[in-house]
Design a protein around this nucleic acid. Structure first.
Lengths: 217, 217
DNA sequence: CACTGTGAATGCATTCACAGCG
DNA sequence: CGCTGTGAATGCATTCACAGTG
């Protein structure tokens, strides 16, 4: 990421593999599904099978955070799910998100239900196009990107998402940082400069496709 | 991804690190920019600095594919760019892409200029919503997803992109495979089953955010 | 018995460090 | 010189394999 798409300013935080953290989300999703099916316990083997990884991997991943399993039975679905939610920081926590750039991609991000479900709430959407300013998007009104940093600060934004054209990306990024965001997700295919205290994640669709083309040819 | 977002059915192809392949795209982008600036040669140090990685990494990555540098001078920008383009399979090659699901995200994908620039051309877009069928999107008309596999086959599609709701994803995936696609990029947060001969890449935005929340909290 | 949790072993990826070249 | 290309060393991540437990 990662893709590309991979974490940039990787804080150590007790030497937990980055890949493990990403899998935590997958475990969450699977456990949620199992919980709906009223499954009480699940073994590492079963969980692994559903996710297409090995059972040893599941046990190792979970062991980084403690001992949640019962010998001979597996993991208690409900309890493990709650625990992972807390570990991931999405349990009982609301993250304030700002979006810069309300084009097609930006609109898709605003509309994406998966974010709300996990406690990520858009509190600000800006666009440099005066045509778009004032339009409603969901429960938000698109605002001008003038004084972006002030808006970010006033709305107490934690995470900034950048979905603007490449050449505007760094400027938006700087404003986000000035406004005090702690993390940035960048969808523009620009290399962004951020201080080490700010988490940066790049998501680049073209890189996904190009990597694929390599393996295809 | 890879994010998750990571390659799934990783063919070996001479043991080149997957991470290296993803960086190839970054090198390409940087070289293209340098070429426009009329830069003749560039050193691994310079290239690395621009991309935020080490110079040893750059040299190692390139060395997997051959020896392109000149001692004391660095790499010839134009030649290296052409070579990498060939290696990535995007030089003089057109990839046919189909999109399933023309919601916000699907529309963003269709509109994304970066794909066209790199030789990825949408030749088919389908949606299960009859309201949308018949509407024009760029130079494409949205079609019904009935007989998707036949459409895929007839249009000689290489790569399928899935941007439909989670519960429709596997069905679309099966149709793509039946139609003969060689690779699938999945934007739905569903675990897809594919035969080992088909390349699968998952891009999951929620995972990106959740990983970030972990490091934030 | 069916499972977990984890040292030890393996397998990747990155970085070091330097010989060798233009 | 300044720079590449690459063995050797290090550092991560995954898997093996099994002692230990309810």
């Amino acid at each position: 990421m990662r893709h590309n798409g991979r974490l940039h300013n990787g804080r150590p935080r007790r030497s937990i593999p980055e890949a493990c953290v990403e899998r935590l989300s997958l475990y969450m999703r699977e456990l949620t599904q199992r919980q709906h099916q009223r499954v009480g316990f699940i073994s590492s083997r079963r969980l692994a099978q559903d996710l297409g990884i090995t059972d040893a991997q599941v046990r190792r991943d979970l062991s980084y955070f403690g001992q949640f399993g019962t010998s001979g039975r597996g993991y208690e679905v409900q309890r493990l799910r709650a625990t992972l939610g807390r570990i991931l920081g999405i349990q009982g926590r609301i993250w304030h998100v700002a979006l810069a750039g309300v084009g097609n991609l930006g609109s898709a991000l605003l509309a994406y239900q998966g974010f709300q479900d996990r406690g990520f709430v858009f509190r600000l959407a800006v666009d440099s196009d005066p045509q778009k300013v004032g339009h409603a998007m969901g429960n938000l009104t698109i605002e001008a990107s003038h004084h972006l940093s002030a808006l970010v600060q006033r709305r107490d934004i934690h995470i900034g998402m950048i979905a603007v054209p490449t050449d505007e990306a760094q400027a938006v990024c700087d404003q986000f940082i000035e406004g005090g965001v702690k993390a940035i997700v960048n969808f523009a295919s620009a290399r962004l400069d951020v201080p080490p205290s700010v988490l940066l994640r790049n998501v680049d669709l073209a890189i996904e496709l190009e990597a694929m083309a390599f393996y295809l040819s």
